[in-house]
């Protein structure tokens, strides 16, 4: 009797691991079917950005991707990830042995029908949405020449007091993209909005 109970316990335990593994496999396959090269969800730091960026460059180089395309994808990835680090409203910052900044967000780099895509998402304060939406709509409507001269203009302007370089970063993303940037907002509660930005290269 006692033996049977232990045995049954192991059996249940095994079932649990099997369903956990099956779930993981389904998730994994779903991402792969969507052409995901890598996906990251959680607290992002500059160190993680560097490592993911290196892996991304190596992966694309091994696949003999055109050097200029690698650079464009990398540039969009860096600007998107740095935007999360700087602007995500879901963040922890403090001093360990040096200043540490961890910002929550999502980064997915994939390949769809011969194009690369970089998706980034993070939470922004509700009060930021209006300005951000306006800026993105403006960029999405610009053609390559307009984006280039807009970038030139912004580069020569004195920095905005509260900016950490984000506004020019968005222009760089739009400029390196081969199609207009796509974006959306979903309100989570009275203060927080989920913001998602996708660029194709």
């Amino acid at each position: 009797m006692r033996y049977a109970r232990v045995h049954f316990g192991r059996f249940l335990h095994g079932l649990h691991f099997m369903s956990m593994t099956a779930e993981s496999l389904a998730f994994h396959q779903q991402l792969q079917a969507r052409g995901v090269i890598f996906s990251f969800v959680g607290y992002l730091s500059e160190g993680i950005l560097y490592s993911l960026g290196e892996a991304l460059k190596q992966k694309m180089s091994l696949e003999a991707t055109d050097a200029n395309v690698i650079k464009r994808v990398f540039s969009v990835f860096v600007e998107q990830a740095q935007n999360i680090i700087r602007y995500s409203a879901d963040r922890v910052a403090g001093e360990l042995d040096r200043p540490v900044e961890l910002s929550s967000g999502l980064v997915v780099v994939g390949r769809e029908e011969g194009r690369f895509s970089v998706v980034c998402a993070n939470i922004v304060a509700h009060t930021e949405v209006g300005r951000l939406r306006e800026r993105l709509e403006q960029l999405a409507a610009m053609d390559a020449d307009e984006l280039k001269s807009h970038y030139r203009e912004k580069l020569r302007e004195p920095s905005e007091a509260d900016s950490r370089g984000g506004s020019i970063g968005l222009i760089e993303i739009a400029r390196r993209s081969s199609a207009p940037i796509e974006f959306g907002f979903i309100e989570l509660d009275a203060e927080r909005t989920y913001f998602c930005l996708k660029a194709y290269i």
Binding site: F74, V78, Q82, L155, R156, G165, E172
Partner: peptide, 12 residues
């Protein structure tokens, strides 16, 4: 070989 947008601002 590569610089981000905030570095571009500094170069400017």
């Amino acid at each position: 070989s590569y610089f981000n947008s905030s570095s571009a601002k500094a170069l400017m």
